[in-house]
Design a protein around this nucleic acid. Sequence first.
DNA 1: CCTCCACCGGAACGTGAGGAGT
DNA 2: ACTCCTCACGTTCCGGTGGAGG
Length: 415
Amino acid sequence: MSRNLFDELLNAKSLFLDRRALGHAFTPESLPHRELEISVLVNNLVEALRGHSPSNMTLYGRPGSGKTAVTRFVCRDLEAKGAAEGSNVKTIEINCRNIDTKYRVLAQIGNHLSREGDAVIPFTGWPADRVFEHVRTRMERDPGVYIIILDEIDYLVRKGREGDDLLYCLTSLNIGLLKDSFCCVIGISNDLGFTEDLDPRVTSRLSPIDVVFSPYNANQLEDVLNPRAERGVVENGLDCAVIPLCAALAAKEDGDARRALDLLRISVQKAEQDSGGIVNIGHVRQAQSQLEFDQITPTIRNLPLQQKLVLFSVIINEKNGLRNISTGEVYGTYEMACLNAGERALTSRRVSSLIRELDMIGIVSAKTTSRGRHGMSKRINTSLPPGFDVLEIMRSSEPLMEPVINTRYRLQNRL
DNA sequence: CCTCCACCGGAACGTGAGGAGT
DNA sequence: ACTCCTCACGTTCCGGTGGAGG
């Protein structure tokens, strides 16, 4: 009997019970350590069940601090209660990173509210005010409370007028445009300062209620992971150190719960590829470096040429065994690299800024310290995962780097 | 204790690309 | 086609800085 290529993997016993439980989209039965935030939302949104309009809200917090999860969690119960009580409550969630213009957001809302026989609002073509009018009449004909959730709203607002206009429209629905219905806007933002980019008139309408989500700490992340793991992974499938490690690593990344879940999910995957056994901390380490790899590769690939040349100069110095390189040393190498790339070298002032940018992205670390007699300078080191081939990424993404990488460099003598 | 190195980093300005309005 | 505006990227200028070495 010939064996099918997929047999082996299909027949292997999976460590996953329910893979979705470890995904981002999954809404669990409880959200540990977000009780306060939940109660703020519930206290406001309960008005919808009483036939009144809830206030608009803005939720702030770092990525993975539970904003979207809390909102979905609360809205799920709200809709269920509304259905049971016979009051018409509808929630519409829109991610502004994907749907990033006023027109497309309105069209999305309009189509969400359509019944049989309604015209489908095309993805382009109508004037924006006609789309808005459809949204209004569709809300009006079916009296109730409409809750519009605009996730990652900062993306839209940063695009200029677009965000202002949309929010102005949506928030004006409650001020006279709707008679028998209410419309409540919940904005979700990763960026605390995003209202600064907003028209002040919109700001005051949009967020009578602000909720700030603080990042999870390591212990709290464990509480987030445990029930998910129980549901998603086979019994005794995890070494007891796995969850604490995932939690600790994610806590370092600004307490990002998504990161923690990613780590756990990929660890389990790695353990499966390892053919059997349980998930151990080695798998978590593998998962961590894969996540880093997946993040850093596109970042480096998309760096502008000058940035690449600067980064290259840091790396070449380090490859020659130097640590804590100074700005001057980097600049010397950088000038040679520019020559080989056929580029004019930027000023050292500019290169200094570029180094700082690389530091902010997290590819290098640059600390300014005094070297006494030898002046103030940065101490520059790369901070890349071990075994990460940066030069290959640069070579494949930028033809001009080829001659730069192929040249041998004579580095300055150190003092 | 003072000097002085080698750079830091803020501020103001120049330049060219790209978008909006007319 | 035209101006006007904004924005990102770079340059020039310059006061500021912490500690090794005199």
